[in-house]
């Protein structure tokens, strides 16, 4: 990878972190609820009445209540973990392959 490209990537990644973190400090005390929930509030507003979902998520039906917050974050982490694991595994192989190929030349 060229030096210039490495620098570009570093700058871009810093930018990503800034975009993600700034709102947290800029909007002190904001709730940061999900925008999906904001969507359901909007439904209530438009209909002028509380909307009663007609189907409960299978997981909530199975454990007879809402998924505890900690468990939910566990499952989200699991999802991230699976993804990162796959990317890192293949990326590692590709990087090593390139090194090896470069040596051959």
């Amino acid at each position: 990878m060229s030096r210039k490209r490495k620098q570009t990537i570093a700058v871009l990644l810093v930018l990503v972190c800034l975009i993600a973190i700034i709102p947290l400090f800029a909007l002190k005390g904001a709730e940061f609820g999900g925008s999906d929930d904001a969507g359901s509030q909007m439904i209530t507003e438009i209909r002028g009445a509380e909307y009663e979902p007609w189907f409960t998520p299978v997981m909530e039906a199975a454990i007879g209540g809402e998924l505890p917050g900690e468990i939910e974050s566990l499952l989200f982490c699991l999802q991230t973990g699976i993804g990162v694991g796959v990317i890192a595994f293949f990326m590692g192989r590709l990087v090593e392959r390139k090194k090896w190929q470069d040596k051959q030349l």
Partner: peptide, 9 residues
């Protein structure tokens, strides 16, 4: 990820 509107998506 937190966003400028004070909610996450």
């Amino acid at each position: 990820i937190p966003s400028v509107t004070g909610s996450c998506s």
